[in-house]
Design a binder for these strands. Structure first.
Lengths: 347, 347
DNA sequence: AAACGCGCCTAAACCGATTTCGAAGATGCT
DNA sequence: AGCATCTTCGAAATCGGTTTAGGCGCGTTT
């Protein structure tokens, strides 16, 4: 308390911990402890420090904090999904599981380029992310593993890793196929067509497999279009539906492997004057808002619950960070059916 | 070179700069300079250091590097666009302008919640991001400014800031409206309807304004539906189109304020047996891949060039970081017309 | 009275890099 | 030889926090 040099105001740069310490007349260490709620600091001192911090509108530099803690409070998301159709809901789920704002997400889009992918991976690791979520693109087939020796917990989401030692999270497409078929069977449909799109897509084959199991279990009929290899596009869906109606005029339900295909089927049925769901019930997969609410009638669909998938991915990483271990293997998450007028009618 | 304690191998933790220095027999300082290509280090020494770094597979900890440099090499993106329809292309554009991998993007979704937005902003600033891009949601009306005193350069993208002192980037919707109308006028159309969706959306009003200017300039007719306030939804688009056809059976073109509305118009025209583009030419806005390539016929649309917008946003931040200054005000970026069969036909 | 415990605080080490500044040695020049 | 210059390297400071080890004052115990 002698005649001391007046503490210079922080000028334009942001206030730092020593500014707070100086203003409240304590040491850096005490200021730090006061701000972090440690218990070996006098309540009166603490409030002086808090006031000073408030006055200087002090915000701790998390870069510095991260350096000593060894944690950065960031999770990387590495994806190839340029359209963002899958990655966005997964991101949203991860974000709220990570406690909004506590942990941040660094999003990297490799755009299907292996080189760019490994570059992104390298910089993510250099940034010392605490965990990594690898989100598959359009396809759900297993993707090459990033390797087992990564220094952070990794979750593969949507498309699993090819290495069974990694932790992968996928949607249960077989279950989805079964649920779709059972829904239609429950409604009394017996001749159900599966509009598969592109059979080279694992997701499409699995959904078919699930549907087939349910249909054959009750001796109903599964109808497939002759045109096996199509695109995931509506033009193909329209063509295939037209052919289906020619060869199987008595079919009473259509499952589109994806909402767009179901929409294509709806369009063709309308052209042919077939009532939906009166003559033919129709449903799709993905429960893509922009499609299902805009069709005539609104489309029943299987929701992939991607947000839940993102949440699960985040909490797996969370547990690993808390000292737990990552369960190896592929975990298939349940999907849910959203029934709308295209199968239920206006009842 | 005396009998020295053997340098302990890095065990399981990641190799650090001192490990490299020790292995190559130099000081931390020299190792750092060698790795960073500074010129006051002997070539022979440098290669010894590089070998050591290679052997230990050393990667510099960028958290530590950031602490001293004061830069983190990260840019925040703050958005309310839950669907990701706008933010994803903007993100993609920003990413490649930022030099793939050199600068990373932290994506935060506030989901329309002001509280969550300011939380996210606070943690982004605590993380010492180098710049911030604020991406507007569905609406393009000016949004509240984050304030002028932010310690980092900020760009508002898609929806501008309400403060003219901020830097905003928007798509030129008036130009878009004019281009759409001129395209149709060039094709000989004279009675052009504008299917505006929801007139409370600035984007819709601006597109209408641009179209009106072009149409009135040549004394052609702009037709508007009676139902002024609709949703941005296809069901509304179908209803409005039906009414339009009743009152204006002679219209020869329809501009949908958005691709979905144009699609709705196509559906109704087909129901009524009107040929597209023979009787009526149709076009939309957004050039949304998933819509425009799936309609019958494929849809002409105005591309908002959001990726270019993202690139521009990133390079503005880049320049500001390099010592430049942010140009205040709103910059409207040009859009582009993608002509397809719904106006051109199969010619 | 010596020993001990406790509450509160600080100096200093630390995280892992970069950067400054000066020293040592080699070389060039007069 | 004497001096300046250049090259090459390292000790130490720095970034902004957290954590540890210990010190001091004071009350309590035996």
């Amino acid at each position: 308390m002698t005649i001391d040099a007046a503490p210079p105001p922080p000028a334009n740069r942001a206030a730092t911990l020593v500014d707070v310490a100086r203003l409240s007349g304590v040491s850096k260490a005490t200021a730090s402890k006061a701000l972090n709620g440690r218990d070996d600091v006098n309540p009166e001192t603490r409030s002086r420090v808090l006031e000073a911090a408030e006055a200087l509108s002090f915000r701790p530099n998390s870069v510095a904090r991260n350096l000593v803690s060894g944690r950065t409070g960031t999770v990387g998301i590495l994806t190839n999904d340029l359209e963002g159709r899958f990655v966005i809901p997964i991101l949203a789920g991860a974000e709220d599981a990570l406690g909004s704002g506590q942990i941040s997400v660094i999003l990297c889009d490799a755009r299907g380029d292996r080189i760019r992918e490994s570059q992104h991976l390298a910089t993510l690791l250099d940034r010392r992310i605490d965990g990594l979520i690898v989100v598959g693109g359009a396809r759900t087939e297993p993707r090459p593993s990033l390797g087992r020796s990564l220094p952070v917990p990794v979750v593969y989401a949507y498309a699993p890793s090819s290495d069974p030692g990694d932790t992968s999270l996928v949607t249960d497409n077989i279950l989805g196929g079964r649920m779709a078929a059972e829904h239609l069977l429950d409604l009394g449909r017996r001749r159900i067509a599966y509009l598969g799109g592109n059979a080279t897509f694992l997701a499409s084959r699995e959904r078919e497999q699930g549907a087939r199991a349910a249909i054959e279990a009750v001796d109903a009929e599964l109808i497939l279009p002759e045109i096996a290899h199509g695109a995931w596009s509506e033009p193909w869906g329209r063509l295939a539906t037209t052919r289906l109606l020619e060869r199987h005029p008595d079919l009473d339900a259509i499952i589109g492997a994806q909402d767009g295909l179901a929409r294509a089927a709806l369009d063709i049925l309308r052209d042919h004057g077939r009532a939906v769901p009166g003559d033919v019930a129709v449903m799709g997969f993905d429960n893509w808002e922009i499609v299902v609410t805009n069709t005539r009638p609104e489309l029943t669909s299987i929701d992939l619950m991607l947000q839940a998938l993102g949440r699960r991915a985040a909490s797996l990483i969370f547990e690993a960070l808390a000292g737990g271990t990552m369960p190896p293997g592929v975990e298939a998450l349940p999907v849910e059916l959203r029934a709308r007028a295209s199968t239920l009618g206006n009842g």
